[in-house]
Write a protein that binds this DNA or RNA. Sequence first.
DNA 1: ATTGATTATCTTAAATTTAAGATATATGCT
DNA 2: AGCATATATCTTAAATTTAAGATAATCAAT
Lengths: 151, 151
Amino acid sequence: MAEHQVDSTAQSLKLFVVLSKAYRTIMDKAIKDMKRHGLSPSEFMILEVLYNKGRTPLQQIGEKVLVTSGSVTYNIDKLEAKGLLKRIPCEKDRRVTYAEITEAGNKLLDGIFPEHASAVHEMMGALSEEEKQTAAELLKKLGKGAETGNW
Amino acid sequence: MAEHQVDSTAQSLKLFVVLSKAYRTIMDKAIKDMKRHGLSPSEFMILEVLYNKGRTPLQQIGEKVLVTSGSVTYNIDKLEAKGLLKRIPCEKDRRVTYAEITEAGNKLLDGIFPEHASAVHEMMGALSEEEKQTAAELLKKLGKGAETGNW
DNA sequence: ATTGATTATCTTAAATTTAAGATATATGCT
DNA sequence: AGCATATATCTTAAATTTAAGATAATCAAT
């Protein structure tokens, strides 16, 4: 194996490590913030999807927050029991169930979301506007590439 | 609230989202790779720490992989049962227990790690060397900043 | 229309993680 | 020394996630 190849792999590994570290540090803090409002991380992230995107098939929610179907069922059940969302069967495809945020859920997030957003904003304080822009572009490219990777 | 403030927060949120997405996509694939070798993600990451850093107090392992003490105990137990590491009581401070990788553990990772590294390398294929360099710097800065954040 | 393959959700049990508190040791102060 | 506080690991039960497979519905192609 050529020297170049070795260095190149090392560079990728390093990026993997700092990506993990940054994500975990930030997500760890974000999770603490979510819990302050009585929602588990999964509950919060699922509700957030519905809050921002509206009525969504359970399937797609699972893809967005990257958890298994069993976990989606479990968390949707809990949120539905709390009255924060409701299931709506799809007319056209009867295999599909939508989840839709309720009035109560909307009100809850109206109260929570701005605070949460500003907490996240503070966590990002180490980077300038321009650096955030650059980082976001690179991460988007990285994520897209990994998604479509051929393995 | 000034317009600028709103945009600035939105920019941070966007970075948060792409960071999450990139991390999850890549980690998801990395986990699949880890499992191919019969280790759970936590087991793999713990063993990897010992493989690279040597004898380490359980406490510090928990900090590195960001899991609770209960989870460290659980996974160290499993790895010890498999003979891949051993516990070593600290002489100076009897509250402390080190974990140290065994010969068998070392051999396992000697066989696994290069493959894993090259799998990770492939996942990063969307970025050029220079882009990886830039991304790593920004993420390091971001992570450090969030670590020392005052909340 | 029927078969076969695919998709979406749910169910169940097992694996894993967390939260809370117990235990033992260490450290600093008086 | 004695006491209060802090630290490191472990224990236990509960919460959560995953893995695997069941069920029902759709779709494609005959």
